[in-house]
């Protein structure tokens, strides 16, 4: 296999940057002396991966070291979180995780780590709004109409989601709770297939992140009812918020945050928080997030305190909802 053409070898050499491997001594003051790995618990190309790569670039520039994004998939993100929890607390392994960090304890009773005790928070990154959407020929025209339609036809309406523990399932649980009826959930293996069937009219409605639905709402392939955040979304000016449209209980966003193992020195955490702040103020990051239908969090949210508060609040919110619904991740 070493007899590759010189051209190919050259090309590989030309486009891959050279970086040293292996960890160094942990002197917090000198951090970072080596490349940093951002562990993403979902597949490359997904929304979480995209957000991570967006902020990794300006953060790397600010920290003066390369940041490598590594995708460790599996079990609703718990494989990645478990891996980072067990790493050396030297700041070279950073976990990016979303709302799933707060639902994991309820979904996975035998979780081998604790989101609150085994990690230090760096700061929140973005809160991606969700949208309530339906197939384009679904009868109701507004969210209010939809709620009463769903109540009347509870036994025929189908609610798609992207699988156990996915943000779309969580949002669906909130909707069911708010409307007060159990609906027929149709799970899919990820958002892509679920949206495909929604566009194709095989299922009635679902709730998913703007990152996935904005394009199809704009083109009219699916019908948008509302966004699930207190503020409207710039890319979708016609959609009211759930609060304005009469379903204030359904307030949910897919919040993302960065974590390091619990024993990491505060000095390193501070450096990462500072770099995150710089990244979130970067115009390119702001622009690209806007294209995704989201924004960086406010400056005071990109801090360990705000992040920890959010995590605690969300664990308290989701644990009873998940337990009541009897959902389990195994």
């Amino acid at each position: 296999m070493n007899r590759r053409t010189p051209l190919a070898t050259l090309a590989v050499l030309a486009v891959t940057s050279l970086a040293a491997c292996g960890g160094g001594d942990a002197d917090p003051a000198a951090y970072p002396e080596d490349e940093i790995t951002f562990v993403v618990p979902f597949s490359a190309g997904g929304p979480t991966d995209t957000v991570t790569r967006l902020i990794a670039e300006p953060m790397a520039e600010e920290l003066g070291q390369q940041i490598v994004v590594q995708n460790v998939e599996g079990a609703g993100g718990t494989v990645a979180a478990g891996q980072v929890a067990g790493e050396d607390p030297d700041g070279y392994q950073v976990l990016m995780h979303h709302i799933g960090m707060s639902t994991a304890p309820a979904l996975y009773p035998d979780l081998e780590y604790s989101p609150l005790e085994d990690f230090k928070t760096i700061g929140l990154v973005t809160e991606v709004p969700m949208t309530i959407v339906a197939r384009k020929d679904f009868e109701p025209e507004t969210l209010e109409e939809m709620v009463s339609y769903v109540k009347e036809n509870a036994d025929t309406v189908t609610l798609a989601n992207a699988g156990v523990g996915a943000a779309s399932q969580l949002c669906g649980l909130l909707i069911e709770q708010a409307v007060g009826t159990d609906l027929t959930e149709v799970p899919y293996d990820g958002t892509g297939p679920a949206l495909t069937d929604l566009v194709g009219g095989q299922v009635d409605f679902m709730c998913d992140q703007t990152t996935n639905t904005t394009g199809q709402i704009q083109s009219g392939d699916i019908k948008g009812y509302a966004v699930t955040t207190p503020e409207p979304v710039e890319a979708l000016p016609d959609l009211p918020t759930t609060a304005d449209a009469g379903l204030p209980e359904v307030e949910v966003s897919v919040w993302h945050g960065l974590y390091v193992p619990a024993e990491t020195p505060d000095e390193i955490v501070e450096k990462l928080t500072d770099a995150l702040a710089v990244a979130l103020a970067d115009q390119n990051v702001i622009d690209q997030m806007a294209d995704l239908g989201t924004t960086p969090v406010a400056e005071d949210q990109a801090t360990p305190d705000a992040h920890t508060a959010k995590l605690e609040e969300q664990i308290d919110l989701w644990t009873p909802i998940i337990e009541d619904a009897g959902v389990t991740g195994g």
């Binding site: 590989v12 891959t16 940057s17």
Partner: peptide, 9 residues
Amino acid sequence: LLQLRLPIL
């Protein structure tokens, strides 16, 4: 060449 994140030692 491929820059896989695998430590040699």
